[in-house]
Design a protein around this nucleic acid. Sequence first.
DNA 1: CGGGGTTTTGACATGGGTCAAGGAACGTGG
DNA 2: CCACGTTCCTTGACCCATGTCAAAACCCCG
Lengths: 239, 239
Amino acid sequence: MIDVFINKLRVRDDVSDEEADALRRAVARTERFDADRTLVRAGDELHESMLLLDGLICRFKDMRGGARQLLELNVAGDFLDLHAFLLKRLDHGVLTLAPSTVAYFPHDALRRITEEMPHLTRLLWFQTVVDASIHREWVTTLGLRSAVGRLAQLFCEMFERLRIVGLADESGYPLPMTQAEIAELTGMTPVHANRTLKALRDEGLVEMRRGRVELLDLPGLRRVAEFDPTYLSLTKRDR
Amino acid sequence: MIDVFINKLRVRDDVSDEEADALRRAVARTERFDADRTLVRAGDELHESMLLLDGLICRFKDMRGGARQLLELNVAGDFLDLHAFLLKRLDHGVLTLAPSTVAYFPHDALRRITEEMPHLTRLLWFQTVVDASIHREWVTTLGLRSAVGRLAQLFCEMFERLRIVGLADESGYPLPMTQAEIAELTGMTPVHANRTLKALRDEGLVEMRRGRVELLDLPGLRRVAEFDPTYLSLTKRDR
DNA sequence: CGGGGTTTTGACATGGGTCAAGGAACGTGG
DNA sequence: CCACGTTCCTTGACCCATGTCAAAACCCCG
């Protein structure tokens, strides 16, 4: 049931059967949510962490005046708030963008893992560290890339992240978001997101139709984004 | 010698004497560097992690065309690349902004800690997780805040982070960076950073002179930044 | 077939970028 | 202690990418 996650771990490191079992036993329950549901609000005190099994979810921060920044998208196999195990209170909210299924890991169970299974603990720690790496790349995206570059970067990153969980192929992948949401993620207005999307379409690079990204020219897209996937740590090495 | 760090840990959680000793023993050596030295380049393979004891250091990413994004400032007591323990290869460079002293923690020693000292392991994990939290706030800053807001946010954050290590008081703190570096951090041009600094000065909020930030009106600055320090997790609670 | 939420487009405004030059500060060698 | 070069800061004039406002057009779903 949480096999998406375990398989993703195995892309980067070995996971023993005992470790996989320990993870499976750590799940208290799963729950299904509609699109557009706020699962956690910034500042909530949490006693469990959520793993996304299916759907599309994002983390976000609100600012005065109704503005909202989407911080990161999460796809099947991603922990949404593993860091809540350490922080206890989240600095951001968590929101479904599409109907989603979530598995809950009580912090007691995670703590037991940290007491008894150091290698598995490092694997979990690793997940939070890759997350930070994704944030860093996004800081660069917002600080340095133009509107076209930001969208190109987004589409390249999501391609890689969906591919390792088997949800993307060279032709494209599902990404059920509105243009307004894409704008909130890439730090621009909906109007400009729309125009930028049109520019990418006119150049024959990508197209977004009915919640799906069609990759028309992946190498070209990578060039526009200056995309370098190393920050995602997708290769195997022992740790 | 690494007491800055241990004291900072103790702001948020208890640290036993054995844990403090284990950390002290984990230090292989310390080294001193001039300003403007690149300590690590993106992609380098690392076998130790660095803790900043004194000085000012930043992480950065380069893009084609010579543009550079500064990702985060680091001050005394901060690990510069604890995440390298898990990642092995860094996705970013590390650069001194001022003369700095660094303590080296071989990954072997850190691994031993994760095998034997689960609570201390969680404390280290926690550090990387706060780091991600700082990145998230910066994503919001670049995505949502105006030029004035970005600088105000920067000055508010650095005040809090320097205060817990005893390097800032209500009057201000040292921040030995050029305006060009501030521009690279806040995602604007040096010229605009200069003008924005002038705006903050004219409003009587902050002033930067000879590598020092003078806080003229901290509440006003916080208002302009919409600053909320919870993301820094500066309060004590057990974990 | 009607109506909400989207997407698209146009006309115009503006924050921040670019280019260029002068001035202040500072370290270094004489 | 001064002269000089270098780096950093400051300011002006102009420009462009993106924001704003507003209205159509589209499209899915009931």
